[in-house]
Amino acid sequence: MRTRILAILAYTGAALMLVVAVCVPFVLMGTFSNAVAHAGLHIDAAYSGGTIVRTIQHNGYRIEVHQPVQPRLLERIEPFVQIVFEPADALPSRVSDEIDLDGDGRPDVRVCFTMPADPNAPLRGDVTALNATYISLTNVGAESFSRMVVRTGNKIVVRVPLNEGPARH
């Protein structure tokens, strides 16, 4: 009797598994994808640059200042702060902006770069630290996750390394 009940359960399970297989492309994939999308997860700030804390409007373009990113545990990155210039196609041919990163009303860094005519051409630029919290960069391109001046789509992403200790915001 027990064997029979077990066999009935097994075949019912196998039939259900077939139903699940048929549902995979129509329902299940989407359901699980939505569950992951709504799980409140976020991409590590070392890649995403962290959350935006301030937006500065300029003539035709804006500058987004992100929260400083600190390494976690043994993470192999220097602390940095990300600055994004967008849209890239509205930027002047030569950009030289002094930016207040910590919101105290005084500029903290000067970012300078020349926009190449070809959007796919490599971009290089300079960052001059105007106080001791930040580290200057000279002729930097895509050096590392903490030191970069790169074009990504219609944005220019600049990452400025921080001296030890979090920046004041």
Binding site: I43, Y47, S48, G49, A142, S144, F145, M148, V150, R151, T152, G153, K155, V157
Partner: peptide, 8 residues
């Protein structure tokens, strides 16, 4: 390239 990693 690192730029593509940064842009996800």
């Amino acid at each position: 390239p690192i730029s593509r990693m940064v842009s996800g």
